[in-house]
Amino acid sequence: MTNPTEAEVITAIREVFGEGAAKLDDRSGILVPVDMWLRVATYLCKDRGFNYLGDLTAIDYKDHFEILYRIISLEKNQSLLIRVESTDREHPEAPSVITIWRGADFMEREVYDLMGIDFLGRSPLRRIFLWEGFEGYPLRKDFSL
């Protein structure tokens, strides 16, 4: 599995969506603003051939949440890491990509259940592992064991 040169993908995204649509992250992967993400995702899936959602998870960095999408192109055997940041501590939100990749269904529910990030534009999220009425979101750093 090879990574396409991220710079190349960023240039392509910027050509379509403008300058602010993508940024190279200093760790790895591409940083996409949360309000542009749904359109960028559609572009990546339909036009760039990233038709397989490998993984979806979120990390709590205390001042912001980072949602990671690992998308894969089965034909070209390439994988790409997309980072989307959500800064609202109380009600973090991100667009749901379930219309683009069906596989995001349970992964989004899992992130909602354990990290408390709300995905908009899909059927209302319910807890998937924990019971209804559970207080708090366990994978957040302020949830102590």
Binding site: N51, Y52, L53, L74, W101, R102, G103, A104, D105, M107
Partner: peptide, 8 residues
């Protein structure tokens, strides 16, 4: 198609 789309 569904298998790929649903990340199976």
């Amino acid at each position: 198609e569904l298998a790929i789309n649903a990340s199976a």
